[in-house]
């Protein structure tokens, strides 16, 4: 196997690591935003309850 071929494998492996890490961070970000939305909803409801 030639050296350029081996470089292809090297960069594929590191690419896979960064893609997996990025997917995990996106997943964390989505859950965080869902949590923020739920908090806003709760704040709105508690505010609404108080005004009643």
């Amino acid at each position: 196997m030639t050296q350029p071929d081996r470089f292809w494998f090297l960069f594929s492996a590191y690419g896979a690591i960064w893609v997996l890490l990025a997917l995990f961070l996106v997943h964390l970000g989505r859950r965080h935003r869902a949590l923020e939305r739920a908090l806003d909803e709760l704040r709105r409801r508690v505010g609404g309850d108080r005004s009643r």
């Binding site: 859950r31 869902a34 949590l35 939305r37 739920a38 908090l39 909803e41 709760l42 409801r45 508690v46 309850d49």
Partner: peptide, 20 residues
């Protein structure tokens, strides 16, 4: 914590969801 708070709010007379 959010789920517990929502349960409290529900108990006071409302409905809630955690992130859908």
């Amino acid at each position: 914590e959010l789920r517990a708070l929502e349960d409290d709010v529900d108990a006071l007379g409302g409905r809630a969801t955690v992130g859908g």
